[in-house]
């Protein structure tokens, strides 16, 4: 009976600690993921803005010839609609 009571008390203490640990660990992991993704997206967008619009047909021509595409010089101004402006 005493052992049973001991196990119950142990579970009452252990379960909230485990759940709290899991919650904190996930929140940290989520924060790190989002921060890294945000930095990466920002860096890539700078590069894409420099490249500007490209001719879509070049992708297929490039895939066939295995040659890199030449970036255009035109720069978009509105991030939501890169063709306007």
């Amino acid at each position: 009976m005493e052992t049973f009571g001991f196990i119950i008390i142990l579970l009452i203490i252990a379960i909230p600690i485990y759940l709290l640990k899991r919650f904190i660990s996930r929140k940290i992991s989520q924060g790190v993921d989002n921060a890294f993704n945000s930095i990466s997206a920002h860096r890539k967008n700078k590069q894409y803005q420099q490249q500007g619009p490209q001719n879509l047909a070049d992708r297929f021509a490039g895939a066939q010839a295995q040659q890199p595409q030449q970036p255009a010089q035109q720069q978009p101004q509105d991030p939501q609609n890169p063709f306007n402006g």
Binding site: Q30, A41, Y48, L56, A57, R59, F60, F83
Partner: peptide
């Protein structure tokens, strides 16, 4: 993309990185 090129060979494409959010 192929359909776009088929209907307009001069189709322009622009790329933007998506700012994804992770959720558990």
């Amino acid at each position: 993309e192929k359909t776009f090129v088929q209907f307009d060979p001069q189709t322009q494409v622009n790329v933007q990185a998506i700012n994804f959010k992770t959720h558990y």
